[in-house]
Design a protein around this nucleic acid. Structure first.
Lengths: 265, 265
DNA sequence: CGTATGATTGAGCCTACTCAACTATTGTGG
DNA sequence: CCACAATAGTTGAGTAGGCTCAATCATACG
């Protein structure tokens, strides 16, 4: 199965031409992957399941035995709040692993939905055991990625619960953009955002109405532009200042395990 | 150095009488720790540093080479927001490891402050390498704990950014209480909360004024009581319903690695 | 006893919400 | 190919909840 000719996937899949999967590319950005490690990772992408746009893949409460590698497409996890609201937790694209953060529980704690058509590779939790036994470097990197995700979540909490609407949206856009750059070194300041304004509001704690008004205001201030469902970061520097943005993707500290020769054994 | 005779630490330290450190007890709750694993963990608690109440231990931006095991006392991480606000990220007590979530970066991304007098054990990031090489079970458990922390953070985001003040505070109280129960099986519905109302507000996104009013309202509804700086969860069930609370501490799924005999090698 | 910290209470304001109407765009079936 | 429906976005009006400011009360400590 190959990705269809769609803008959102073309962006990612055509970017850095090589035969590696998105997962290997996302990890390979931070360290060289050995052949053994590559084989172990390939084992996680054997099964495939294609998903339709807006398909509900799992819901909170259900049994949670599998994780998923995203082959292509966009997905997001979300959680409904009793009062009627919804929290969009995290957006996933090609190469992401879905479910690391819920590894600790045998039931799902969020819902997973496809934002676009796509393809995901399910693999059982138990497949992580061999990785931890035979690939300590990969384990350490994976650990570091988990730590990074937690940091990103803290950034999100900081922006979503303490900043003004324009700052919240600036943070969402910059964070997504920084993430896309990892697997697409040629990415410009223009990118596709496969979420509607209600979704965006659910991601940053605003109503769809406020998202609309805020987008318009940001556009008239020359911070961003919108065009064909794509976003242009017209003034990334000011956007960054607006939300005190720190890129958590471009650089990570891997020295503590890459400097250890024993871990290569 | 031993813990002083203080309510907040007595609660934890006298709880389950044995010679294990808080760290071993926090991990031992979820799986039996082998002698090898115990030795590896003991190596993380060799250095000691005592801290005074309200002492600033590190600030964002500084070099981040060390993690800390909390021997006793309460601490919290926080981050200042440009507009003037503050976000209290996470509260730590005896047995917690501080810094796992910022492993990915060579600089601090939050500030660490002691809420009470206490003692912490610094150890270098590089000490995690041997753990990952020689103790795959421990690594898997540690991984699971990291995943749990991320889940707790999502719960916090859900409560803090989407729920009413009383629900937010209910969530904070229940979450802290569930955490304390892990290392203190005799804990009742009464516990000490070493944060003032401004801190609590910073933890859940409210002003100190709203925290005060909300506490009073919850008390008059019979949900909680306050007494000598301690909190009594008068009606835990209603509190749970108020914020759709799920205990992320009492049970975790460890079957995916504890069932794998290869990991014991 | 005086000071510092923390909690409470009142008054007024402001922001983002809801409700609602309307426009724009996309997709589908006759 | 067009007409209609469904989805998404925009704009206006009124409201409510939590904020700030400020004064007062309570407690702990030197």
């Amino acid at each position: 199965m190959s990705a269809p000719d769609d803008i959102s996937t073309r962006q990612v899949c055509d970017s850095d031409e090589n035969k590696d999967s998105g997962l290997v590319r996302k990890l390979g950005y931070y360290m060289d992957i050995t052949d053994l490690e590559r084989d172990l990772l390939a084992g996680l992408e054997t099964a495939e399941r294609s998903v339709r746009a807006n398909e509900e893949i799992f819901v909170g409460g259900g049994r949670n035995d599998n994780l998923f590698v995203v082959k292509y497409g966009w997905l997001y996890t979300y959680s409904n709040v009793p009062d009627g609201g919804r929290l969009l937790v995290r957006v996933y694209d090609a190469g992401d692993v879905i479910g690391m953060s819920t590894l600790a529980f045998d039931h799902h704690i969020v819902n997973l939905r496809a934002a676009t058509e796509g393809c995901i590779c399910p693999f059982p939790k138990t497949a992580l055991g061999p990785l931890m036994k035979d690939a300590p470097r990969l384990t350490a990197l994976w650990f570091t990625l988990a730590a990074r995700e937690e940091t990103v979540l803290v950034d999100t909490l900081r922006a979503t619960s303490r900043m003004r609407p324009d700052s919240r949206i600036a943070h969402l856009l910059l964070s997504l953009h920084a993430r896309l750059r990892i697997t697409n070194s040629r990415l410009t300041d223009r990118f596709r955002l496969p979420l509607n304004q209600t979704d965006i509001g659910d991601a940053v704690g605003l109503s769809n109405v406020t998202v609309s008004r805020t987008f318009s205001a940001m556009e008239s201030k020359g911070l961003i532009e919108r065009c064909d469902g794509e976003i242009i970061l017209t003034d990334p520097k000011k956007l960054g200042q607006l939300c005190d943005f720190h890129d958590r993707y471009s650089k990570m500290d891997t020295s503590w395990f890459l400097g250890d020769p024993a871990l290569l054994a």
